[in-house]
Design a protein around this nucleic acid. Structure first.
Lengths: 147, 147
DNA sequence: CAATCTGTAACCAATATAGTTCCAAATTAA
DNA sequence: TTAATTTGGAACTATATTGGTTACAGATTG
């Protein structure tokens, strides 16, 4: 368990909910598709709710509903909401300020890393949950043609 | 300690070694700049050695030497050598194959994630260790002008 | 009122990171 | 030859994160 799967599972959840916008979807049902437990799913749904992607409905016949149109949810937005953090991590200890390199490296790397991370986000911003759902449909069609 | 600092420290090491290509540099000295212990540094140097970036010399007056020109070491190459893995992680458990979404999602996300990761690598490939060293020099000059 | 579902707390097992101590082997220099 | 230095790596530890699990209060439905 080195890196979080939150982002992946959050996208899984959103794609699922994009298939059926009518009735509330329960965390139990979603957990069945993701193959995990409902509490983990509810934790992620809570984050998605905080960021306005979904809303919840308590009680019997309750569950979760999508608040936004799937084609209005960019993958970069979801990544931000999940707070996965940067793919780059600075030193655990502050480098030696008495060394010319140690003194400046975090500033220098910070710039380079920020640019690379932005390149990644810009790419993620090109796709939406609606695009993913369409790809899922296409993959299933292709599969049917084989079997 | 959620994510490894290997890549950051590896770049720190390479910048340091790019400042002085003559005499071998010890893991002890490098650890002093990074502000950590020599064993951790040697572990990273071992990986850099495996990938042909540096070579080692045992015994007294020994240490480490850079094998490549700093302007021939792209940041993407270093990232690959450190095996940090993808910023994206798939489900821990295989999603439910009986669900149309669960059945296809890893294929779909795999494509999207690969493209985003490539965008990040392409950006990292634009900079070399020589570029970083130059930025370090510039930052130090700017600092001197202030104080 | 019973059943269902959210929302969250509490606890746990597994894993990764990196800090630390230690020592054999290689190399240099005296 | 001997002492000092340095790599290379094993072994152990503290800490943090992840996600699996149980439990339960509160809201809602019928």
């Amino acid at each position: 368990m080195n890196v979080s799967t939150r982002y992946t599972v959050a996208l899984h959840i959103l794609i699922l909910m994009a298939t059926d916008k009518g009735t509330p979807m329960t965390s139990e049902f979603i957990a069945g598709s993701v193959n995990t437990n409902p509490v983990f799913i509810r934790r992620l749904l809570g984050r998605l709710k905080d960021h306005g992607f979904v809303e919840s409905q308590s009680g019997a016949r309750g569950g979760w509903l999508l608040c936004k149109s799937p084609d209005a949810i960019r993958l970069s937005d979801v990544r931000l909401a999940m707070e996965e953090g940067s793919p780059f991590t600075m030193h655990t200890q502050q480098p030696n300020p008495a060394c010319p390199v140690g003194r400046s490296i975090q500033g220098v790397l910070g710039n380079v890393f920020a640019r690379a991370e932005r390149a990644m986000y810009d790419d993620l911003a090109k796709s939406t949950v609606a695009d993913l759902l369409e790809s899922v449909y296409k993959q299933n069609e292709a599969r049917q043609n084989v079997f």
